[in-house]
């Protein structure tokens, strides 16, 4: 396939779920979920604690498989092979972490390099600044507060300009400024791709055009 700019990649991306079911032990997380998401869509995954919102997000991101049913990524109408899914999706989640023994800048540089996302050093620094972490770029992530770590997770998620952005508890540990950043990123990403938010917060869920209820 020829090289495409990131903008092209986003516009041609879509996600489809057909009859997706998953159990966790005897507990049913989702049964027979079918939906289709295109560029500009925002989906809220809601439900009480422990209802399987995170598991559902991981299935969307290709980190877990459904027990039955299929999840497909499409790029320009072509099905994307599962082993390439990772280059289309980013996740911000409580159980995802960045390298505590590397600095913020080293983390992003590393992800940029192994992914081959093609960002320059300045791009990455701008990203760090945009998330309000300017001045801390060369500090070890281990010394960051949880709110700052959450911000850096957003930065790491944005390095690849993901056509699909999965946000699990998107504003946990965020202050007011953090929430503003979240809203900015949300609007920016949904204009060019798909955003899925897993949340308990009714306000956050309102950003989304569609809803799935877990554990129902």
């Amino acid at each position: 396939m020829t090289k495409m700019s990131n903008a092209d990649r986003r516009q041609e991306f879509s996600l489809q779920l057909e009859g997706v079911s998953r159990r966790f032990g005897p507990r049913i997380i989702c049964a027979d979920v079918s939906l289709s998401l295109q560029q500009g869509d925002c989906l809220a995954v809601v439900g009480p604690n422990g209802s399987g919102k995170s598991t559902f997000l991981k299935m969307l991101g290709g980190l877990l498989r459904p027990d039955s049913g299929t999840i497909s990524y499409f790029n320009q109408g072509q099905t994307v092979r599962r082993e390439h899914w990772f280059s289309y999706v980013s996740l911000v989640a409580p159980d995802l972490a960045l390298y505590a023994e590397l600095t913020a800048r080293e983390n992003l540089t590393f992800f940029n390099k192994i992914g081959g996302w093609g960002k320059s050093g300045d791009d990455l620094l701008t990203l760090i600044d945009d998330l309000g972490l300017g001045g801390r770029a060369d500090d070890l992530v281990g010394t960051f507060s949880s709110g700052m770590k959450q911000r850096l997770k957003y930065a790491a998620a944005l390095v690849k300009d993901p056509p699909l952005l999965l946000l699990d508890e998107p504003t946990s540990n965020f202050d007011e400024a953090g929430r503003a950043i979240f809203i900015k990123i949300l609007n920016q990403c949904r204009s060019t791709g798909i955003v899925v938010i897993a949340t308990n917060d009714a306000q956050e869920a309102e950003f989304a055009g569609q809803q799935v209820v877990m554990g129902g």
């Binding site: 980190l63 999706v89 995802l96 960045l98």
Partner: peptide
């Protein structure tokens, strides 16, 4: 530590 998830989402196997 949970960095495996970051690695899976950025690096080929």
């Amino acid at each position: 530590t949970g960095t495996a998830v970051s690695l899976k989402l950025n690096a080929a196997d």
